[in-house]
């Protein structure tokens, strides 16, 4: 089977700007994109640069954009890409600066993982004799160690522990494109994993409070790309939504995002509908709306301002009962 690999090329030491180079390959059936790249590197062009290690979708090194979508090159079949796109176009991951060719700089990604404190908080951090240390001969770990299935049974969380930190979600994340400070899907999914861990001893709720500040859980645009394109079938966005629910149930509602959701819930509880004006006021306050006066003004000229008072839906009592049922579920 003959096919073309079109690779993004950029070596900042010699190239003024990035360019694409085509390689014609004669491949074998069931070849992966990584196989193809390794074949090019060993037979045609040794300068083509990319990361790889395990070749079995477990180390997360070989993530790159393949025909525009972030994937693991070692888990992606040439055949299926050619059938769909007619070519193998490879580019570096998005939302991260390019080091060379298909290799991106990873510091900002791992910096964000570190920022959520990806370790168990509590006594082991504060008490002098419980500090992290290399175990001495015969010394036992004082905290229980969970097998993945036990962790799932305890927390209901069966996916985030499978994260291989490949950065596909980060590369596809909608918010990350426009807000480089956003913690990103992988870090927030990991945060959820620690918050749910029964061994974690976050006494003052600092994890949720910190995550509720700008650039945290409330900045997710819900574009679903992190779930769609995770090669390990993890859904960071679902973890983020669970963090929203947890924050609100623990009355951590100082953020605009929390106010927004509470506003929507209140509006549904009152009318069965979403009152666009009231939800906006609940979220940003009347003063906040002033910033958007030009938008509001133009919209009102066009007759687009929604009503402040909405007609109740028919059988509104059904919805009121749904809210009452929630309280019952809580008990």
């Amino acid at each position: 089977m003959e096919f073309t690999v079109r690779s993004y090329r950029f070596n900042p030491e010699v190239d003024k700007q990035p360019y694409y180079k085509d390689y014609i390959l004669n491949g074998f059936p069931s070849m992966t994109v990584l196989n193809a790249l390794m074949k090019i590197k060993s037979e045609t062009d040794g300068s083509l640069t990319f990361r790889r290690s395990c070749r079995s979708a477990i180390c997360g090194s070989c993530a790159m954009k393949i025909n525009g979508i972030s994937k693991l090159a070692c888990k992606t079949q040439v055949n299926s890409e050619i059938t769909k796109f007619g070519i193998i176009k490879v580019e570096p991951l998005g939302n991260l600066p390019v080091v060379r060719d298909l290799v991106v700089e990873q510091e900002s990604f791992f910096g964000k993982i570190n920022e959520i404190k990806p370790y168990l908080l509590g006594i082991r951090e504060n008490s002098p004799d419980e500090k992290f240390h290399v175990l001495k001969d015969g010394e036992k770990i004082t905290q229980p160690v969970f097998h993945k299935s036990e962790f799932k049974a305890l927390t209901g969380n069966n996916d985030t522990p499978n994260c291989i930190l490949c950065e596909c979600c980060f590369s596809e994340c909608g918010t990350e494109v426009v807000n480089k400070k956003y913690l990103g899907p992988a870090a927030l999914a990991k945060l959820y994993r620690y918050i749910e861990d029964p061994r974690d001893n976050d006494r003052d709720g600092s994890r949720l409070v910190n995550a509720s500040k700008p650039n945290g859980i409330w900045d997710c645009v819900h574009c679903q790309a992190c779930e769609q394109f995770c090669p390990k079938s993890i859904s960071p966005v679902k973890s983020i939504v669970k963090l929203h629910e947890k924050a609100i149930k623990n009355s951590i509602t100082f953020s605009k995002g929390a106010k927004h959701i509470i506003g929507i819930a209140n509006s549904i509880n009152k009318t069965g509908r979403l009152n666009e004006v009231k939800v906006a006021i609940d979220t940003v306050g009347l003063l906040g709306l002033m910033n958007d006066l030009p938008v509001v003004f133009r919209a009102s000229l066009k007759g687009k301002i929604p009503s402040l008072k909405l007609k109740l839906i028919k059988d509104m009592d059904d919805i009121r009962l749904a809210f009452k049922e929630l309280d019952r579920e809580e008990e």
Partner: peptide
């Protein structure tokens, strides 16, 4: 369907997952 309610704007499970289930199940 005048009885139909708001779906929750795609984020209501951040308030309560059961609420999303109930109003949309309805």
């Amino acid at each position: 369907m005048p009885e139909a309610s708001c779906c929750g704007g795609g984020i209501i499970d951040g308030f309560d997952a059961n609420l999303k289930l109930f109003i949309n199940g309805r």
